[in-house]
Design a protein around this nucleic acid. Structure first.
Lengths: 212, 212
DNA sequence: CAAGAAATACACCAAATGGTGTATATTTCA
DNA sequence: TGAAATATACACCATTTGGTGTATTTCTTG
């Protein structure tokens, strides 16, 4: 049984969701509030639910602020943001605050139930447009362009894999039927190409590349 | 009309998708290849499609590498990663490489068509489990709550930083005015706590944690 | 207070690493 | 064809790392 609370200021929408979600017998709407402040009172008296369905536009404390507080005080509770807006800044803020999912209010009733179950099983329901915003943001922060393959030869790439797998020179040599000394030679070449001088530096470069 | 190319090494899967997607009259599968190398030949002779359906596990050039090259040479082409795996590192790498969507192969045929149309309209279809990975990553990078510090003591955390900075035991000792031998003792304790046994394994763990 | 964790330090050892040489066979390509 | 790159291998060396002991001091917590 998925215990769920609703936080939504518009009565019709709130009661609509309550009715709708209670139709499914895996979900129980334990309470529905019109403000975040009331929600917190409810959570402390009734206990934290599995999921809070959170409107982003609330009088008083905003849905984003409330999300942050929920994740602080009740980290086990997932927050599903439900909104009519697709504003980029709000989406990113809600996610930073710890929202577990972010979907639009025009979602079909049946889909909403499916997404709540998805959420409860560890997934994050996100509408495609929200996903696009997130993807772009992530790509922007990670420099977009590929970091190149450092002009490594095929053999050198194999050696890189061996290292990353935690093998020693000798073990890599055994794996590819060459001597450990040769493996070492390769590694030193690789170090020069990557401009590093130890395993640790090597790992830092390689783990942020698409070499692996 | 959405022009689409498929890059997938398993023939049955490849032909299955081709047949299936051609059933929809808004989509035209202009070509299907079994390797990234062939795909690039096709793209240069037939012209870039709107969407490439890309398998991640390919012989030769990987789907991730290919995605990066497509975004470089044909930025207008969207890449939809189709995979059976949900491995965190691969997901993030594919997104960094510029993937526009990332969905699982077990997606229902009707849903796949819907997702391709979503993609073409500017959304990013992402399966809920992939979305969860992305959300976590984003939250982690923006000061989200720590997902485990492995019970390291404050001193041990300092040592971790020293290692990640590429210092040797002795250098770390000098930095903190303790002996190199002590630093080593700390490292060995840390290894036990992280359940690793070498710098390489250590880096793999630490770089995916919020210890740094 | 006593037990335990945390931080410090030293000894000893085998193995791995990093750095530099030299050398040869093969392949690639201008 | 001839130079450059690639892949192979061995020698020698100092340093680093991983692993195991033992031991002392300080701090924390039941």
């Amino acid at each position: 049984m998925i215990k769920l609370m609703i936080c939504e200021d518009v009565k019709d929408v709130r009661e609509g969701f309550r009715y709708l979600l209670n139709l499914d017998d895996e979900i129980r709407v334990v309470a529905a509030y019109s403000t975040a402040e009331e929600l917190f009172e409810g959570m402390s008296s009734l206990g934290a639910p599995n999921i809070v369905l959170m409107d982003i536009e609330l009088p008083g404390m905003s849905g984003i602020e409330a999300t942050g507080k929920i994740k602080e005080r009740y980290p086990g509770t997932a927050v599903l943001i439900l909104t009519i807006f697709e504003e980029e800044g709000k989406i990113l803020k809600a996610i930073q605050a710890g929202a577990t999912g972010y979907i639009l209010k025009n979602t079909k009733p049946g889909d909403l139930v499916a997404q709540i179950k998805t959420l409860h099983q560890g997934g994050s329901p996100i509408s495609p447009n929200v996903a696009r915003v997130l993807l772009h943001e992530y790509q922007r922060e990670h420099g977009g362009k590929s970091h190149g393959d450092f002009n490594l030869t095929p053999r050198e790439k194999e050696i890189v894999h061996g290292i990353v797998d935690g093998l020693t020179y000798r073990e890599i040599g055994e794996a590819y039927n060459i001597s450990g000394a040769t493996v070492k030679k390769h590694i030193l070449h690789i170090y020069k190409k990557l401009n590093v001088g130890s395993k640790v530096e090597f790992m830092k470069k390689v783990m942020n590349s698409d070499l692996i």
